[in-house]
Design a protein around this nucleic acid. Structure first.
Length: 478
RNA sequence: GGGUGUGUGGUGUAGCUUGGUUUAACACACCUCCCUGUCACGGAGGAGAUCGAGGGUUCAAAUCCCUUCACACCCG
């Protein structure tokens, strides 16, 4: 499990085609995860999701947690577990397990019921750890910026002045969140929610995605060098804790299996005694713990747009015992900074493991980053912009608001349902005016088709050594 | 014929009772631009009415009074 086979490599760049084995199938790379923060791709119902050209999705731990979706998944699993057990076990040893306990406690998971069942998607799923919310609900909110800042556009020429402001420690103050060594406290809907590395991994285990991310602190591009360094070092310590928690889970699973084989309730579990508050169910039936519950923990590289920090982080995370890496955090002030960050980081990561670039995914970015050695992406752009009436086509981005009177399909040779059913841009515009759910649906499936095709084209181009040619074609319009 | 009510940007409304804080507000639509691990079917700007018409009161009227027009309803 979690083997990464490199199938083809570009000669002129670091681009490669790979195959990552997960419990829910092989993920062919480069690829892009569509974002299903709360367990569904917005405006796409669970019924139609399996019919769409989607290879990978990413859900979000924080949002699933606060929206009680994890609870729902747990309930679903308890139900399956109960049914499973009652059909297999004659005696009633398992009665000690009740759904209430299961829902809130870490435990060896019996059935393979997971977020896949919840979202109705039997392909690889990633879960983000909540680390991005440390930024988006923290400094990101306070600073009013994204992870690539492009504020002060009027100061583009006066770069030194802007840089001075950016380097100032002023931007390290006023975080609405409380961040300390232990974790992060989020004020959310009148409650305080504490997320720690252990908690995040626990939640992610309950979610059951194939690829999970370490809990990190995503910093703001406006944070000072000192702050970014401090946050990065803390993130490294958190990574150790994430790995440990994840390994303990793994061990407990194995113990569960042994106990199952021995059919004994008295297996030695003393090495797990430090797991206070975490109980093992006293059950003889743990055979349901399948390969499908295994999870790959990806460590995340931080360090902002500072060369020494990024390199230090890449070296540190790169040597950890994890099956893959995420490149996260603030990526500087513009795209050049972002490319620079990748050029610092990627050469320091082991070639034989996959690299995921968190949160990036505009068309140009995908090409630039694949060429620099990125294997997977996730991005809200395709689905969010669809809802904001931006459609992606081979001839560039199309703003539907300007196409109110155009009686043509979005794209002639597109395989998406909208184009196949000859929905015209005029019709689609009208649906948007009426806020008809079909407007969001059609636009979203169209953009999904576009990005899925894009990734496929990229993979094929790498294989036949024509990536730069393909890039040229797309760059005419993007 | 008598009575009542309504008349504000493209559409729907707020303001009118207690005139000034209205260079007339809001929503939708319209025109730009934006969206990169989604608190994002969202965000930032812009254009657009002198308040049915005319007259009067007043330092000051969309707001009070008169006349008139249009529409709606009620009574004959």
């Amino acid at each position: 499990m979690f083997e990464f086979k490199i199938l083809a490599k570009s000669i002129s760049s670091k681009a490669r085609v790979g195959e990552f084995s997960t419990p829910h199938g092989k993920l062919i790379t480069p690829n892009l995860a569509f974002v299903a923060t709360e367990g569904e791709i917005k405006s796409i119902t669970k019924e139609v999701l399996p019919t769409l050209p989607v290879n990978l999705i990413i859900v979000n731990t924080f949002h699933l947690w606060v929206k009680n979706v994890i609870q729902t998944i747990d309930d679903g699993r308890s139900k399956v577990d109960d049914e499973d057990r009652s059909s297999k076990i004659e005696n009633n040893q398992s009665s000690i397990l009740n759904p209430q306990d299961l829902s809130s406690t870490l435990y060896p998971l019996l059935s393979s019921f997971s977020v896949h069942d919840y979202v109705n998607f039997d392909k690889p799923i990633m879960s983000d750890s909540g680390g991005f919310q440390v930024f988006s609900m923290g400094f990101g909110k306070a600073h009013g910026v994204g992870k690539i800042t492009n504020i002060f556009p009027q100061l583009n020429v006066g770069y030194p002045e802007r840089a001075k402001r950016v380097e100032g420690s002023h931007y390290d103050q006023g975080n609405p969140l409380i961040i300390n060594e232990n974790g992060v406290e989020f004020p959310f809907n009148d409650q305080k929610l504490m997320l720690t590395p252990e908690k995040s991994i626990q939640l992610q285990q309950q979610i059951g995605a194939d690829i999970i991310f370490a809990f990190d602190e995503c910093t703001s591009p406006l944070n000072s060098y000192e702050y970014t360094k401090e946050a990065m070092e803390r993130t490294h310590r958190w990574l150790k804790r994430c790995i440990k928690t994840s390994q303990i889970n793994q061990k407990r699973s194995e113990v569960g299996k042994i106990r199952n084989q021995n059919n004994s309730d008295k297996s030695d579990i003393s090495d797990l005694s430090d797991l206070s508050g975490i109980r093992l169910p006293i059950s003889s039936d743990l055979s349901g713990l399948s390969e499908r519950r295994k999870q790959a923990l990806f460590g995340i590289i931080q360090g902002g747009h500072y060369e020494d920090l990024r390199k230090k982080s890449a070296k540190f995370v790169g040597k950890q015992d994890v099956p893959g890496f995420g490149i996260g955090g603030s990526l500087g002030r513009n795209k050049k900074d972002m490319h620079q960050v990748l050029e610092w980081v990627i050469p320091l990561l082991p070639d034989e493991k996959p690299r995921h670039l968190l949160g990036i995914g505009q068309v140009r970015d995908i090409f630039e980053c694949v060429e620099r050695g990125v294997d997977t992406f996730d991005c809200v752009i395709p689905t969010r912009e669809a809802r904001h009436q931006i459609l992606y086509t081979k001839h560039g981005r199309v703003n539907l608001k300007k196409m109110k009177n155009v009686n043509e399909a979005i794209e002639i040779d597109c395989n998406c349902l909208a184009c196949q059913s000859n929905v015209t841009m005029k019709q689609l515009s009208s649906l948007f005016l009426l806020k008809d759910p079909r407007a969001y649906y059609f636009s979203t499936i169209h953009n999904i088709q576009f990005f899925t095709d894009l990734m496929k084209n990229i993979r094929e181009a790498i294989e036949i050594k024509k990536l730069s040619k393909l890039k040229e074609i797309y760059f005419k319009f993007y």
